[in-house]
Design a protein around this nucleic acid. Sequence first.
DNA 1: GTAATCTTTGACCAGTTGGTAAATTTTTGA
DNA 2: TCAAAAATTTACCAACTGGTCAAAGATTAC
Lengths: 214, 214
Amino acid sequence: MAQPKSASRAAGTRKRTRIQREKEEIILEAALDVFSTHGFRGATIDQIADHAGLSKPNLLYYFRTKEAMHRQLLDQLLESWLRPLHEIDAQGDPISEIQSYIGRKLELARDFPRESRLFANEILQGAPRIQEELVELRDLVEEKAQIILNWIRQGKLAKCDPHHLIFSIWSTTQHYADFDAQVTVVLGDAKKTKDRFEDAGRFLSQLYIGGLKP
Amino acid sequence: MAQPKSASRAAGTRKRTRIQREKEEIILEAALDVFSTHGFRGATIDQIADHAGLSKPNLLYYFRTKEAMHRQLLDQLLESWLRPLHEIDAQGDPISEIQSYIGRKLELARDFPRESRLFANEILQGAPRIQEELVELRDLVEEKAQIILNWIRQGKLAKCDPHHLIFSIWSTTQHYADFDAQVTVVLGDAKKTKDRFEDAGRFLSQLYIGGLKP
DNA sequence: GTAATCTTTGACCAGTTGGTAAATTTTTGA
DNA sequence: TCAAAAATTTACCAACTGGTCAAAGATTAC
């Protein structure tokens, strides 16, 4: 007999079997595909099951609800999402710290566009399922905003509002993942993804060096 | 007897009655609310009907399908959406042309956030319903990119990729509408919307003046 | 080998969804 | 005023939705 109580508790404490680990990974991969392009409400369990090549009841054996899949994806996402901001070093050179922050964010947008869109969908729809996590994000932003303010006070950076500086970096970098459909039409299919991100990196580098030099 | 064929053809050629004009406006207003927060697939006709204070069949008397409402919203949107870019004047002063373009885009984000989110939702989901319209957008971008390139050749603007310049302006300005839920958490509820957009305007002004001056 | 456990499936269900049909009520124009 | 047109409502439907259940099939540990 099935034991959904333990098996489907993906983040459970009981040790998971090999099959559990494999199937859960397959399911999350499929769920990421579907959630990131249709949003939570627009996605259906059947779609995810199709993508995963599993039956619907089989999916629900590993994750008790659609929301459980969504939640686990978001939880996994947020950690890696905040890491680049975390890595900003108060001891480093301000301009190059910000440059490499932009570089790391661009890499994330290039290598994990689905994750970016999953997050964008959630925020766009009012962030109903990640209010708590956003508080964590706010605290991290506050911490880094203070570092930036100190840099400004020390005359190492042009005077500016650090919050809006961070917002602008988020938006310009994530734009290439979230609005990929638009970017592709404007630049033409011919432009390869790799070139596109290199061009973007050059442009943003120049923009922020010019705009932030004291 | 009802004549859905003509009445529900919202953009029809037959002259519309007073009631038709009023109700269609009410419905589109409600549809904008719902579509912009849930996306096309996530929105239901019942929700829109509730928002509009009408019965579901009554809604479908004015718009034959859910898709018809969505399409009309997008059609109306795109014109006003492209206007700020249209207004960039090749004869004007480059830096101040770009400054006022940013200003106009920020105003749109402030005054029409739902429209911005409707558009964002559509692009995020791969722009399945507005591929044709995006081609129009591409041509306009190409035209303005040429103007910017000329400015650069004349030494009036720092050398940069005009496409990515436009992308960065789109993303930084629309961010305040599309990611409002996140911005509000980070800045705190206390910060009034008006102040927020003024701060953003100041920051972006500085960033682009510094980054684009030749 | 075999019993206990884990995995998968097919049949099913109640609620929701987009949309329809016909009858009724309201508005309009002569 | 009154009939034609327009607007609204009630009742309805088939397809889809998230999710359940019990039974059958596959693995595992001894």
